[in-house]
Amino acid sequence: MMMRISDLKTHFPTPDGIVRAVDTIDLSIRDTETFGLIGETGCGKTVLGLTIMRLLHPATTVEGEIIYKGQNLLEASEAEMRTIRGREIAIILQNPTTSLNPVMKVGEQIAEAIRLHQGLNKKDAAAKAVEMLDAVRIPSPSQRANEYPHEFSGGMKQRVMIAMGLACNPSFIIADEPTKGLDVTIKAQIVELMREMTERKAMLLITHDLSVARELCDRIALMYAGELVEYAPLKGIFESPLHPYTRGFLGSLPERGLVPIPGMSPSLIDFPDGCRFHPRCEHATEVCRREHPELVEFNAGHFVRCHHARS
């Protein structure tokens, strides 16, 4: 087991109240699997990724355990975390346009992590950075390494982000919306690249794009209002979804008719009583309004959080 997350809560204090972005999550990620975390914007997906990396504001309260290779990351010191970030666990952040430093050469942005974690000198690290750019199929990589982010297209910037994340050969990768804002043909190339580059690694793929998840993931979890509502192997989610939210999400796929889920996802400050999804659920009954359902194993390896789960 590469990573085990248990009872994880991530709360931020804000002037309007406490935002319960992650509340509560349990999940395990195996050594070489790609685990998809799916949900609508604002459900807490990105916060989960940043919680694992311990990159949130110091005022954030985090409870629970994140066990990575036997070590609880939530108890690691900041200095220990710095040796883990980039070397053991890498995160490919969303929005490559703002996530690359506009006044630093692209090659240097890759090479600095290599110098830090692998102790290479400037010249060797720069050469390694060019190798990485080549590996993510950027044409004429040695020339491109000396260019700045604004000289790259959106798809090329995403490739740079992937090269940057994988530069120190991490064993666990968190990819946050790696295909956001890309057009369909570029998206397909990036998906292919991600598949190739992360073949023997564990990856947590955060996305709201089910088509991308279907291409890359071994298992998929659906996140709603800070918690997981269903998780199962890929096939289980697509062929026998159990939760009304999952079914709604699948129904919003283009090939299934683009049917939207009615209503809005709730604010993370004030959850509805009972099942957090009940105000938007057509099957909601009295018990859904009153009792918060537990995550139960419905079939082997297929978990769901619903009072009325049925196959």
């Binding site: 990159l55 710095r82 883990i84 600095e112 992590a113």
Partner: peptide, 26 residues
């Protein structure tokens, strides 16, 4: 507070290095 500073932290760089190499020039 910019994304590329978060990006630099995610690489495991020290705060001092991030300030000197990434933040000041911007």
């Amino acid at each position: 507070g910019a994304d590329y500073i978060l990006s630099a932290r995610a690489k495991g760089l020290s705060e001092r290095y991030i300030m000197n190499r990434h933040a000041i020039k911007n």
